[in-house]
Simulated scan of single mutants.
Amino acid sequence: MKTVLHTANSRGHANHGWLNAYHSFSFASWFHPDRIQFGMLRVLNDDTIAAGMGFGTHPHDNMEIITIPLEGDLAHKDSMGNASTIKSGDIQVMSAGTGIQHSEFNPNADQHTKLFQIWLFPKYRNVEPRYQQIKLDPSLQKNNFDQILSPNPDDSGVWIHQDAWFYLSNFEADFTKKLSLKKEGNGFYIMTIEGVIEVNGQKLETRDALGIWETSEIEIKAISNAKFLIMEIPMEQ
């Protein structure tokens, strides 16, 4: 088993006023030679967007883009004709494929928006761009690994063009549960959203993250009431 610990205070940070962003991996003006990616996970940005502000229209291609709002709302428009608002408790994916353009704004005048934006390299290049958005059921996350993303259109959650599985969990203090890999050779990347957990004995506080690979199973224990995101990700293409 191999591990890499990314503490919350080791992340890149850029405060633009309208955007307060923390980067788990090298992004924009923040570069760290040891923090380029974890397997096929290229970006994990922890963004706070000020009221009425956002990202103007910009392009993407050949990337699987996942947005998980944590607080507030995010208005989305794209070149595929989609126009929608994602809210806390939703998950959105875009397969950028051959190319898309989109914009993202906080539509509220009096509330910030917090979100994770995650990019994964796709399994296949130049696919037809696609968009998907669903509302999650928070009751499924209580003391459970609620699958919110997979490679399978017929499975629970959203789907992407990559052999990855994501889970959201909300554990009560002292609860312990094990999770096995779906695909041999993949790794786990776990980000604590709130609270304190232990992953295979490694303590993770709020916004700490741990990558684990060359193991088939992890055990997570909640030290306090805790919310966290688990990403099972291919380590190689």
Rank of each mutant, 00 (worst) to 15 (best):
F188T: 05
S139T: 14
E128I: 15
L149P: 10
K178S: 15
Q162G: 09
Q92N: 03
A209V: 04
I100H: 08
E71W: 04
D208F: 09
I223D: 04
R125K: 14
M63V: 13
I66N: 06
T7G: 00
T176M: 07
P59L: 02
N15S: 05
L120A: 00
A109N: 15
D174V: 11
S79G: 05
D174N: 15
N106H: 12
S84D: 15
P151C: 01
L136K: 08
F175Y: 14
Y189E: 02
S103F: 10
Q101K: 14
H13S: 02
A21V: 11
S95F: 05
G39S: 02
V93L: 00
V199F: 08
T206S: 14
Y22H: 15
H16T: 01
H23G: 01
M53Y: 13
N45S: 03
L149M: 10
S103D: 06
H6G: 03
S79P: 13
E232D: 00
E236P: 07
W213Y: 11
N45H: 11
W18S: 01
M235S: 02
S150Q: 07
G52C: 05
F175E: 06
M1P: 15
E198A: 05
T3C: 00
R130I: 02
M80R: 10
T67Y: 04
H58C: 01
Q133C: 01
E205A: 10
S84W: 14
P234Y: 01
L179V: 05
M63C: 05
G17D: 06
S88H: 10
I49E: 04
G157M: 08
I197K: 12
M1A: 12
T215I: 14
N108L: 15
F105D: 07
Q133R: 12
I218G: 03
W30L: 00
L74E: 01
D47K: 12
A109P: 14
N126P: 07
K87W: 05
I223V: 15
I148H: 06
L149Q: 07
Q37A: 08
H58L: 06
Q162P: 11
Q117D: 02
E198Y: 09
Y22N: 13
I160C: 04
D137Q: 09
M235P: 08
S95A: 12
A28Q: 11
L210E: 04
D46V: 09
I190K: 14
L70N: 10
G187I: 11
N62Q: 06
G52E: 03
S150N: 11
Y124Q: 13
R42D: 02
F116A: 04
S95R: 13
Y22C: 00
G211R: 10
N106R: 14
